[in-house]
Amino acid sequence: MRGNGSRLRLKAIQIALLAGAFLAWHVLTSPTLLPPIYFGDADKAAFFFGEPLKVFSRLLDWFVSGEIYRHLWVTLIETLLAFAIGTLGGVGFGLWLARAPLAAAVLDPYIKAANAMPRVILAPIFMVWFGLGMASKVALGVTLVFFIVFFNVFQGVREVSPVILANARMLGASPRALLRHVFLPSAMSWVFASLHNSIGLAFVGAVVGEYLGSAEGVGYLIHQAEGVFDINTVFAGILLLTAFALVLDWAVTILEVRFMLWQPRAGETEKL
């Protein structure tokens, strides 16, 4: 990662790798290009693994007809809601519990149990409770995000340097001021460290929820396509979700840079 030259080269190699993968996919699945080696039937490879050209044309179709926007929008809203509610809840609960040692000691085993439980399994229950609409997907995402954020906040409050704490108290900080000026900022640095994880999990909650039962969203599209063995549409959906996740991740990075100005980053000198 020295000069511009080596960075360009890195990008070139990465793109070549991607192109190579798609080419291999195309060559291996196209019914007439290769003699059938593994599958007895020439069309079988395409049936199981799809064909990249058809996958792309399906993606193009979605965007040209505009059909996809509604589904993307639903998935996005579910993800963002789950992320926001889970994060707020985790921060609030974490701050409170870290300052209430008795409650923390009492709740400790239950929190551990709730965290250890594979919470995706709650999805059907949420559907019974909240119906097939957005609410049940948001609820699933919240249970996934909440614990990550909660544990990080809890840790962040515990790890505040005792000297900084003593100093703030000597400067006259009330318990409320301590919360706002010391514990919260310290916890936020931990929360931001976990943000990439938690936005990813909010997304998982939304998609899995849609997949298991809904009438809208990208997960629903994939589920539908699977129902009729339309493997190309399934792959198109997977590619779309991946791109979507990358965009979310990138947005989080922007947030992080914006809010975590105070954190030292490696090698901050300017190039002359």
Partner: peptide
């Protein structure tokens, strides 16, 4: 409450800039 304490170890709040650190006590009060 009558004392100001300059600690031996680093005690500035790393999430506040220098000016915000200097005024922290005034804001708290």
């Amino acid at each position: 409450r009558h004392a100001g304490y300059l600690f031996q170890a680093d005690a500035l709040m790393p999430w506040k800039c220098a000016l915000e650190n200097v005024v922290a006590g005034l804001v708290f009060r």
